[in-house]
């Protein structure tokens, strides 16, 4: 089947999509957007987190056809012409990235958090990131990066 939806503000069309295929597969394998990662395909790791109509979801659990006519934003769409998004800048600054596999999902999920909650507490950060697994960093640097991202965003960066 054909699926048409917007990704990072651009209309996209994917053809020959299998009806049982996930949005994640379409993004990565048909549209050439490998930012969202495929690690577990069962909603456990959060590496595939993308915005669907402004709400963070696991792209591996959305059927491609369910994205028809909707707006998807992936990690590739976080930066703007002015440069990196606050979350991206903060993750780089704080050394919150090691192998990087979990990073795209964490960036989208953290971006949503600091958009909704401008000055999140540690408890709020932990709860927001409870569905994003990282096997490298031990999370401390990630918490630091999210706090820093909130500061950068508040400072209008």
């Amino acid at each position: 089947m054909r699926v048409r939806f917007s990704v990072n503000d651009r209309e996209q069309v994917a053809d020959d999509v299998w009806e049982g295929e996930s949005l994640l597969f379409v993004l990565r394998e048909r549209l050439g957007l490998p930012g969202a990662k495929n690690a577990c395909e069962q909603g456990e790791c959060g590496s595939c987190t993308v915005y669907l109509d402004g709400v963070p979801v696991c792209a591996c659990l959305v059927a491609a056809g369910q994205a028809q006519g909707r707006e998807v934003r992936t990690v590739e769409g976080l930066a703007s012409a002015d440069g990196l998004a606050p979350v991206q800048q903060a993750f780089a600054e704080c050394g919150a990235v090691q192998c990087g596999f979990c990073t795209p999902g964490l960036l989208v999920q953290a971006d949503d958090l600091i958009t909704r909650v401008p000055d999140p507490s540690d408890a709020e950060i932990r709860e927001a990131l409870a569905g994003n697994l990282c096997r490298c960093t031990g999370y401390e640097k990630i918490l630091e990066a999210v706090r820093r991202a909130a500061e950068l965003k508040a400072a209008g960066r």
Binding site: G20, S22, E41, Q42, G43, C58, C60, L61, V62, A63, Q66
Partner: peptide, 17 residues
């Protein structure tokens, strides 16, 4: 299929066709 959080796991793992 609604949220797909049960259905898609089964599809991704080939439990269901």
């Amino acid at each position: 299929i609604q949220g797909g959080t049960d259905v898609m796991v089964e599809l991704n793992f080939g439990v269901h066709r």
